[in-house]
Design a protein around this nucleic acid. Structure first.
Lengths: 156, 156
DNA sequence: ATTATATAGTTTCAAATGGAACAAAAATCA
DNA sequence: TGATTTTTGTTCCATTTGAAACTATATAAT
């Protein structure tokens, strides 16, 4: 990897990551927005509740890299659409536990295979040994970015 | 790479891509928003005009994966801030050519090294041979996603 | 117990974003 | 030439997003 001195956007890692991620996200989103009328944050909420029923809003926010406002809105909308049910905790009056309704579970059950299938199509770009290599490299990148993030503390 | 039957968001490629990309973007943005008060689309516009002076709005949009409305707004804002100058083409009355002002050039000259430095920090996650491997795999992914995008034509 | 502090979640308001309609100029075509 | 279609870029409007203020409950401290 040679040293760069000029910034060519098309080869610039943050830019390429952003473009790829946007393309992937919007392709994936088209699978479930058309069919079920749910947004990306809503889908993420459904996905995580499908994995772990009964989570609270804050727990969802932590698992899903969304802020609490986004979760509030996703949950409200999912409740209106009757995909999610809220039941307040008797242990802690501030929180409520969220679960998929039967309809919500159907969304989950239908979208998961589509999503996995889409993921497989993308993985198809790489040979099997390349795939595990990708995962290894990607994880290192994630870690490093996390380190940088923690090393450069927010000014407060 | 074994077959997945359940979707765990934390291992799901589109999700991981999205999180990594967002983290990288927001770290990078913090470098120039604080110092120069420009947004991500504005920075991209400056970056591309630094590489290729005199582009028109449409040309910027093509190079930078933004839609034309985003470019219009970025350019308007950059003109107000006196980072960009618009000069209408006498060859084609519809378009105008955009250039960095001296102030805009200074932003470019200052941000580019910061951006490249940031990129180097991220690349630091990988050993040199891993870096070239990453580029290779990443390019394959980009290509595949592009293929899927073209294979699934927009409904119009 | 009473006060202070922290946490969960919502609301509010302003800014960012996206799509459709639009105006102006250019290109095509009859 | 004159009519039609494209292209460029902007504006308008509705939706989304984000940050800060706020309410309600819970926890800690004195």
């Amino acid at each position: 990897m040679e040293q760069k001195s000029s910034l060519q956007l098309q080869y610039f890692l943050p830019y390429r990551l952003s473009v790829l991620s946007n393309n992937v996200s919007s392709l994936l989103a088209s699978l479930y927005t058309e069919k079920f009328g749910i947004s990306i944050p809503e889908w993420r909420t459904v996905a995580v509740l499908g994995e772990e029923p009964g989570l609270t809003s804050t727990q969802i926010a932590m698992r899903v890299a969304m802020d609490k406002v986004a979760v509030t809105r996703a949950v409200q909308s999912l409740i209106e659409k009757q995909f999610v049910l809220r039941s307040s905790s008797q242990a802690d009056g501030r929180v409520s536990h969220l679960n998929l309704t039967e309809r919500g579970q159907r969304v989950y059950d239908e979208v998961v295979p589509m999503a996995l299938n889409f993921e497989r199509e993308i993985w198809g770009a790489l040979a099997p040994e390349e795939q595990s290599y990708w995962v290894k490299l990607f994880s290192k990148m994630e870690q490093r970015v996390e380190e940088i993030r923690n090393g450069v503390p927010k000014l407060d």
